[in-house]
Design a protein around this nucleic acid. Structure first.
Lengths: 300, 300
DNA sequence: GGCACGGTTGTAATTCAATTACCTGAGGGG
DNA sequence: CCCCTCAGGTAATTGAATTACAACCGTGCC
């Protein structure tokens, strides 16, 4: 029993709450909303007061605590107090993007949301799971990547990176191709499904098919209780709170890319020096397609 | 964190405790000492446990609370939790990624680099130029996007976003197609070239071709003096310092995406309410491809 | 259409932490 | 020597937190 600030296995409490939100029952979601709306305030409430605010019973509040991995209500209060004390040091200049915002506001808010997504994702990322994924990918004869819409670009990005260090990887976004490809995977192969919500039918199906053939399955999603996460052997969660500006993937995709970059570097490290050599050779290959005036030789 | 908190950065509560110490009864002083020795630890204790530790009774603990101006024991716990949380502010983990770094180090460094890229890009972004780009794109009958390798994904991402709000956009990564497409652009059209270094021959050529036909040309690059930037009418610069781990685009691509997101939101704002309607319709369209267990309706 | 089932929610009983009321004993002054 | 005061504690009481249980609701399966 050391300190309140470093509780369970995973990172910051509020991040966890947001991640688990969709998997909660309605009454529990009301509690979650109350907590997210005013963490500091809730820390000052008794269980009955919070129940009142969330229009539900004390019982449900307790259930909510257990759901998010906190043993009881007093512990929740403590963690909320700790959390909101930290936030106050670095105030959230954020807020949602409004239709009337000036461009300067938009830039500020987007930047803040992206920064936060990166920071919080890193904080709560399960390094243990990541290392298992790295190990699996490093020794896999073949890696399949599944993603739809915006997530497909993340898949493509990873494919390209892995390809540059000679790992055999394929990124698919067509269900039919996903399924046929998954059907051809074997024991040592790895299949990675990417979906922010974790509910994209096609990606879930493909991962199930891959599992059926013995491949190691990995989910990259924001929601650890989502269907995709449940299907996978290993889960890497992001921590993006999408702005409500219904534009679709913004910070979620940034968070996914960060995770995928970490994965890539891990793999590259574990197959050094081959990776280094491969990277140098590929860099040399595109050098002829660079104009002068920059000594830089990275690709893109 | 179990250290004896002697010097400065402690907040008001512990300061107050120290101040009133001499005025306290012996048994109360024992409580005070226990609190000062390990504030975080005490926050995790019940009143009985603390009484035990201070070799005294619960009653004395309560008396101690009142003495230092805290109404009750639970309140003391909360304040201690908040206090000790503030003490451990997270340190900045800069530095380059080394081959021998642990995965946890890698995650920390990647996150830090990404965060910094986002922050610094936002700070130096030319909002005036951005607003001109927004205006041009908003009224353009057609937008061409050019990018190679990793930057092609950024182009595709933007294309998809613009498409969702009914803007006609094309993302090309094949030189031949780029050039033919550029040749068909007109006065009101916009061509956006994306290249981190700004030296990718194909992208520069395509932008030159587009300029030749009267289109507004835009560069998204890290280097304002690069060939690409010189070719373009408007320049949006990113501010990524690529880690030397020769992996290619990592934080540079994050920065590009942020810029592109701002551009997109700007355009969406300026064509409201059509954009809103379009976004809602597209969200509805994919709803059937979502599994339940999530109320969320963002795409990917 | 009805019936069984799993999952959700609330009520009531119970346990346990926190607080208060009250008691004891030691020291000091009249 | 007795009484008064006050530190300190025990035990009773209150109220918060938790658990046990029952009602309910939608869903899928005959």
């Amino acid at each position: 029993m050391t300190s309140v600030t470093s509780p369970g296995p995973t990172g910051p409490l509020l991040v966890r709450v947001r991640a688990v939100m969709p998997a909660l029952a309605p009454a529990e979601q009301r509690v979650a909303n109350a907590v997210l709306a005013d963490p500091g305030g809730v820390a000052a409430m008794t269980i009955s007061e919070l129940a009142e605010v969330a229009s539900t019973s004390e019982t449900t509040v307790i259930r909510f605590c257990k759901q998010i991995g906190v043993p009881g209500y007093p512990q929740l209060r403590l963690q909320l107090a700790a959390q909101s004390a930290q936030e106050n040091i670095r105030p959230e200049v954020g807020g949602d993007i409004e239709p009337g915002d000036s461009l300067a506001d938009v830039v500020g808010k987007v930047a803040f949301a992206d920064e936060r997504a990166v920071r919080e994702t890193a904080q709560q990322l399960d390094v243990d799971a990541l290392s298992k994924v790295v190990a699996a990918v490093a020794k896999a004869p073949r890696v399949d990547l599944y993603g739809a819409a915006a997530s497909s670009f993340v898949a493509l990005d990873l494919q390209q990176k892995l390809h540059r260090i000679r790992r055999v990887a394929f990124a698919w976004s067509d269900v039919h191709v996903m399924l046929t490809s998954a059907a051809l995977l074997g024991e040592d192969d790895v299949a990675i499904g990417i979906s922010h919500t974790g509910t994209t039918i096609e990606v879930v199906e493909a991962l199930e098919e891959a599992a059926k053939h013995g491949a190691t399955t990995v989910a990259v999603t924001n929601f650890p209780r989502s269907p995709l996460a449940r299907t996978a052997d290993l889960v890497l969660t992001t921590a993006a709170r999408e702005t409500t500006y219904r534009s679709g993937a913004m910070s979620s995709r940034i968070a996914q890319l960060m995770v995928v970059d970490c994965l890539f570097i891990g793999v590259a490290q574990s197959v050094l020096p081959d990776a280094r050599k491969a990277l140098e050779e590929t860099a040399t290959a595109v050098r002829g397609h660079r104009l002068k005036s920059s000594v830089n030789d990275q690709q893109n």
